[in-house]
């Protein structure tokens, strides 16, 4: 499933990084501590977090994550948006919490 398919199915908002929406999603990872995400998230994963500052883009880009979903409607910094566009990392937003959005990801077949 591509990021674009997931966005359409779950009605997520694309905040930035539109150029990267054709990436394939392999699996998911949830976490707000960046070192844990760096060490454990698999390439191609959709990352669910409540962190929204610019360093999340560096993390996603360095370990080749497919996209980031910022949960709980957390406010996203301007620098994060600029960097997501530069790095072509789709930055998505939802008002749902991490648990609710993961449940939906599983329902649409992301394992």
């Amino acid at each position: 499933m591509t990021v674009k398919d997931m966005v359409e199915k779950l009605g997520l908002s694309i905040i930035a990084g539109k150029e990267g929406v054709d990436k394939e999603i392999t699996t998911g990872y949830v976490g707000d501590l960046l070192s844990w995400v760096m060490a454990n998230a698999k390439a191609g994963a959709v990352w669910i977090t409540i962190q929204s500052h610019v360093n999340i883009i560096a993390v996603a880009s360095l370990i080749n994550l497919s996209c980031i979903i910022v949960a709980e409607g957390a406010t996203i910094d301007k620098e994060t948006i600029v960097k997501a566009n530069e790095e072509k990392i789709p930055l998505l937003s939802t008002n749902k919490n991490s648990y609710e959005i993961i449940k939906e990801l599983i329902e649409i077949g992301i394992k």
Binding site: L33, L34, S35, W36, A39, T49, Q51, H53, N55, I56
Partner: peptide, 16 residues
């Protein structure tokens, strides 16, 4: 609060 300082930086450097 930004998600750093989990005490995993040096262990990750060692591990990888």
């Amino acid at each position: 609060e930004l998600g750093f300082g989990a005490g995993m930086g040096l262990p990750n450097m060692k591990k990888y």
